[in-house]
Design a protein around this nucleic acid. Structure first.
Length: 116
DNA sequence: ATTCTGACAGCAA
DNA sequence: TTTGCTGCCAGAA
């Protein structure tokens, strides 16, 4: 068993960024789905942490397409204005009502299922 | 080095 | 059903 190094664990963040950018237009996914895809089912918090650092990224990360398992825009507050995330989602055809994604399971994009 | 926190999720009461 | 605690991993103080 080779113990993973800290630098390799940092790749987790990179994975999150890559996967987030792979989310198709008009689709959304959950933190848990991303975490599970990366191999750590219950490390969803890391996903949020990584996306928190997405602001440090030179490129645009469609983090607005990532919501919690309830389809709730838990990270809306991190887009400057609380309405920014909602606007971005609605701009992609995703209906957001009361900070909650309508037809969440329908718009849900599972990396495990789509990317295999 | 220790402790706390964080854009979550799961399970127990 | 709702509320609360725990687990998860990494980073900041």
């Amino acid at each position: 068993m080779v113990r993973k190094k800290t630098s390799e664990n940092s790749a987790f963040f990179f994975r999150v960024y890559e996967l987030t950018k792979l989310i198709p237009y008009g689709r959304i996914t959950s933190y848990g789905a991303i975490a599970h895809y990366l191999g750590s089912g219950r490390s969803a918090r890391m996903v949020g942490w990584a996306l928190n650092n997405c602001h440090s990224r030179p490129e645009f990360i469609p983090a607005h397409r990532v919501v919690n398992r309830n389809g709730l825009l838990s990270g809306k507050h991190h887009f400057g204005n609380s309405t920014t995330m909602k606007q971005l989602l609605e701009n992609e055809g995703i209906i957001v009502d009361d900070d909650q994604v309508v037809d969440f399971p329908e718009k849900f994009w599972d990396p495990l299922k789509e990317l295999k």
